[in-house]
């Protein structure tokens, strides 16, 4: 019995190590490559695990010549704006869905669910024309159509969270003379704060990673976000892998920090989306 237990432990440990290796290896290899010179990457040193002649040249080029810092700044602006307005709008909507009876509620929920399943490609053409008419192409107004991706998800997660807060608390607040808005603001919001925070992080990541709308609506490089700017490093003819590696390493850092700090909230947000009963 003890021997089989030990054997199972070893198999388990081996599996975990292999899994971790597969998950981490691409990042590790990119990190190593970012310190290699072009000569080494395209020559015989392509597969060496330790750079022969380590250099920061790639980082310098990417940061100061290829506008990666500008892209990171754009991503922060776009993702933060989206998070703030989506959280406000989604909280109001989710509160109404969770706390009130009204006609058409199931239709509204159905629409919200349907929108989250749309192929985003369907909105790009009309929104492109709309933005062209309103002269909004190449601007931060791109955060508005982001709502099609983030808002349904936000409402969905928040409704689940609000449903877990007992109604009795609000009823007693009401008896004490609080207005509907005060109830939301003073009772529901603090209790729902963890859920709201979770939704905010998921929204932020979704907005940070958005690609299609930015590449179609903001063709001007001055408004490129990280994913789009990164995709332009891969040109048709010459790919400078050293620079690509350095850029990838830099843009992974913000995501890494968010994941390390907020992993509990992220997992809770992912699982309330559908699974948790």
């Amino acid at each position: 019995m003890k021997a089989t237990k030990k054997r199972r432990w070893i198999i388990f440990a081996a599996f975990v190590i292999v899994y971790l290796f597969i998950m981490i290896f691409p990042f590790l290899w990119i990190f190593i490559t970012s310190f290699k010179t072009s000569g080494e990457i395209f020559g015989t040193g392509a597969f060496r695990a330790i750079p022969e002649d380590p250099t920061f040249g790639n980082y310098v080029t990417v940061l100061f010549e290829k506008g990666i810092l500008k892209a990171i700044a754009n991503s922060f602006i776009v993702a933060t704006t989206t998070t703030i307005y989506v959280i406000i709008v989604a909280t109001l909507c989710a509160y109404a869905i969770s706390r009130f009876r009204f006609r058409g509620k199931s239709i509204l929920l159905g629409i919200i669910l349907a929108v989250s399943m749309f192929p985003q490609m369907i909105i790009t053409g009309p929104v492109y024309n709309l933005f062209y008419k309103l002269d909004l192409l190449n601007s931060y107004a791109v955060v508005l159509p982001y709502s099609t991706i983030t808002l349904p998800m936000g409402v969905w997660i928040l409704v689940t969270h609000f449903n877990q807060i007992p109604l009795a608390l609000e009823e007693s607040a009401e008896i004490d003379g609080a207005t509907r808005f005060q109830t939301l603001y003073k009772i529901v919001f603090p209790l729902a704060a963890p859920g709201v925070f979770t939704t905010a992080i998921i929204t932020f990541i979704a907005a940070w990673n958005e690609f299609l709308l930015t590449i179609t609506l903001n063709t001007n490089a001055a408004y490129h976000t990280v994913p789009v700017a990164i995709s332009f490093l891969r040109t048709q003819f010459s790919i400078l892998w050293g620079e690509v590696a350095a850029a990838t390493a830099i843009v992974t850092i913000p995501t890494l920090i968010i994941v390390l700090i907020f992993q509990k909230q992220i997992i809770s947000g992912l699982t309330t989306g559908g699974v948790k009963e």
Binding site: L20, M23, P26, P227, S231, R234, V259
Partner: peptide, 29 residues
Amino acid sequence: MVGKGIVRTTSLIPWAIPTAVAALMWSYL
């Protein structure tokens, strides 16, 4: 058993990075 926490954290990273970044990384590999 062992390593549950680290496996969970590690699992989130590929999900969290932008798809375009992951794609570019793989195109190099």
